[in-house]
Every structure is written in C-alpha cells, then in structure tokens.
Design a protein around this nucleic acid. Structure first.
Lengths: 208, 208
DNA sequence: TTACATATGTTAGAGTTTCTAACTTTGACA
DNA sequence: TGTCAAAGTTAGAAACTCTAACATATGTAA
C-alpha cells in the first residue's frame, strides 16, 4: 500500500512521479537562468523524459511556472510561520523576524521570488492555487494588532501592516538586483529592520 | 542640411532612422505584452523591415531590451527632476513629489519599470548606458540633506534616503502587480507618501 | 562626375522552442 | 483475463533567434 504510492518509479516507461519532478526541475532552472531563461524542453531533459511529456501534466509553459509559484508561496509562508517560534506574542521582534524571513527568501531564491512577484501572473488566481491557508499578509496584520494590544484589524493596523510589507518588499528587490552596492551603499539587514520597526511603532519602542 | 538628418527616410531600401524606431517598437511591445512577450521579429515587423534587420543595430535581443531600459531610465530621471519645479528647497513636499513621480512612472509604464528593475540586467552596466548624469539616488540624497539643513551627505542622510527609496520601490511593485486590491486594501498614494515623509523625518514634521 | 568602401538593408537557412497529433505501453480493475 | 484510461513516445508545424551571403544606397576622395 505504501508501495502503490511511493515506489512505482522506473518501469522504463511510466515514470511514477513526473509531475513533481518537473516542478522541481523547473524551479531549479528558474533559479539558475532566471524566469525567462527557463524552457519546457530543458526541464523535460532534466527529468529524463521526452520534450512532449510535460504536456501530459501541464497545459502549457505558463502553467509549469505557476506551479513553481504556488509551491514557492507555500514554502515562503511556512518559513514566515516558523520564524515566529519562540518569540512571545506582541513582541516587536516578531515582525522583525517576519521581515528577515521575507527578505531572506528573496535572497536565497531570487528567481522564484521574482516569478511570484515581478510578473503578470494574476495574483488572485495564484493565491487560490497556493492554497486557502496561505495568507502571509493576514499573518502580518495579526502580529501588528498584537503589538498594539488590539484584537481587531482596524484601519490603523492595516495601514501599518501595509507599510511593513511595502518596505520589506522593496528591500528584497533592491537586494537581489544588487542595486545598492555599486552606489556606495551597504545594506545591513538587521539594523534596518529594527529601524523600520521603530518608525512604524514609535509608541511601543519609545525607550529603546 | 536639415534634410540630410531628418527627411532621408523611405528611399525604399535604407530606412533612415531604424535604430530609434526599433527602440520605440520594442518599448511599445514590452508595455503591451510584458518583457518576455517581446520578440525581435515582431519589433522588426512593426518597424516595417525584415526580421534580420535589427541585427545590424543591436547585437542580440538582450541589447534591444537594454536600449529600452536606458531610454526609460533617462525619462524616469527627467520626470523626477521636473517634479521638483516650483517647490522650495528643503521642503518636505519635494521628496513627496519625487516619490509620486517614481510610483507614477511604474504605474504608467509597468513593462519598462519591470524591465529596468525586476531583471538580471547588471545594474552597473545599465547605469553607464543610461548616461553619467542619470543619478536618481543622488538626487534623493541631496533632497534629504536639504530637508535636514545639511550640506554633507553623511551616513544618516544616506540611511534616510535608502528608506525612502526602498519604500517607493516596494510600493511601485505592489501597485503594478495589483497585489493589494484583492486583499481588501486600497492604497491611496498621496496620504501614504505624506505618512512616510513624517516617519522618516519626525523632527521636521513635528507640528503637522 | 565617377568609383569605391561602408553602412544598412534583404533573403535563405540552421538550430531551438512551444505545442499538437497520432501512436504505444503500462497499470488498474471489472 | 481483457479492456480502458493514464502517461509515455515520435513526428512535425509554426515561430523565434541569430548567422551568412548577397544587394543597394550614401558619402567621400580622386
């Protein structure tokens, strides 16, 4: 029974797990050559099948990239959740941790990050594909509310959450494009995140 | 004499101004179909020449896109400069105006904006291609220094300029990806820019 | 004015890519 | 055990990038 699911690969013909392996090959290629350097043919070769095989699992090239997006978004969200571990609720360091993970993901996987954001993929459809429980922005909102000692997501909470998101989003792009370094700037992640926390929550961080 | 430069087009063979027209065709296509939807062939057709003609003016596809980048960066920078017109030096509204133009460019030309930033083009080489006088970040730094009443670009000035840049950069991406609207968020540009101004320059905007 | 070099077009074509069609193999299950 | 659907295959059309070889205009120098 475990066998039926796991060990059916390599009969010579039927592959066993091609869909997942194609997603992984696509992810690797996107990372290696950038989102537009990717080709279906190359992913197929990487997975050891004919160039037509992917079309049994994906409508077209675009759908393969969307699968990588969805998988990336789930991973991204999981990392965000994990980063909160061990920091008490309501602590400013929780949003700093979220920011660190957000930017860190962009740095570790710039190709996927750009695929998820810098593109024409309709956001709504992608959100659905990633899963209903993947809601990074709502996570930030909850943390903001907790820091302010509120239970409701009011307009002020949403506004501050948007400021934080906008900021780490921009920072991610600047870092992966390496746009700052050759302008004589060094971007030091931790201090800058702490500074943003202070500016977005001045009433909380008065004494530090 | 004016003739020699201007009206030499349409001899049937020699086109007269193909290079510039190809850049414009490429720009339009990038805007229409996104940076990866662009094809050299289509740009050639749009300009009314054979599909091989572009290669007389550009090494390859990539170089055509770079030309569009460089031209876009010059336009972007020109708009930033123009936006300062009529606002007294040292006024907070000057950096707000810069931010408005930055985001506005992204909204009016999302394709070119993404081409300039969200891509693997080596920033340094592109900066050079755009021209030595195109220095948007230095412009922001000068404005920040003026607001603080300083003449020197010290570490604090650079830090605040980076905050501003990061923020409008992130805001631009969120807006053109329309990532906010379907999360129940409306982004109102002017108020949010004013708010950022206050948070980055708390000592200047104490009384407002 | 003519002649030539050069810049800037053209056509032809090789190699790659996306995607479809038609055929083949395999595994599941009635 | 026989049949069907799922998931492979090969073949090929249409598009794209880029090169090579050829053609034509333009500007300059004799």
């Amino acid at each position: 029974m475990a066998q039926t699911r796991e060990i059916r690969r390599k009969t010579g013909y039927h592959h066993g797990d091609l869909q997942a392996q194609l997603v992984e090959a696509t992810r690797a290629l996107v990372e290696e050559k950038g989102p537009d350097g990717f080709s279906v043919s190359e992913a197929a070769r990487k997975a050891g099948v004919s160039t037509a095989a992917p079309y049994r699992h994906f409508k077209d090239r675009e759908e393969m990239l969307e699968a990588v997006c969805a998988e990336g978004m789930r991973r991204h969200f999981a990392q965000m959740n994990a980063s909160l571990e061990g920091i008490p609720r309501g602590d400013l360091r929780r949003v700093e941790a979220l920011g660190r993970v957000y930017v860190g993901f962009a740095q570790r996987e710039p190709g996927v990050f750009r695929l998820i954001f810098g593109s024409k993929h309709k956001g709504e459809a992608l959100d659905k594909k990633a899963g209903d429980d993947v809601r990074p922005f709502e996570l930030v909102q909850e943390e903001v509310a907790a820091i302010l000692g509120r239970t409701e997501i009011d307009a002020d909470v949403m506004h501050r959450a948007l400021l934080l998101w906008t900021f780490v989003h921009g920072l991610s792009f600047l870092l992966i494009d390496d746009v700052a370094s050759h302008k004589g700037l060094t971007i030091d992640l931790n201090p800058i995140l702490a500074d943003i926390g202070r500016r977005v929550f001045p009433e909380v961080s008065a004494g530090s």
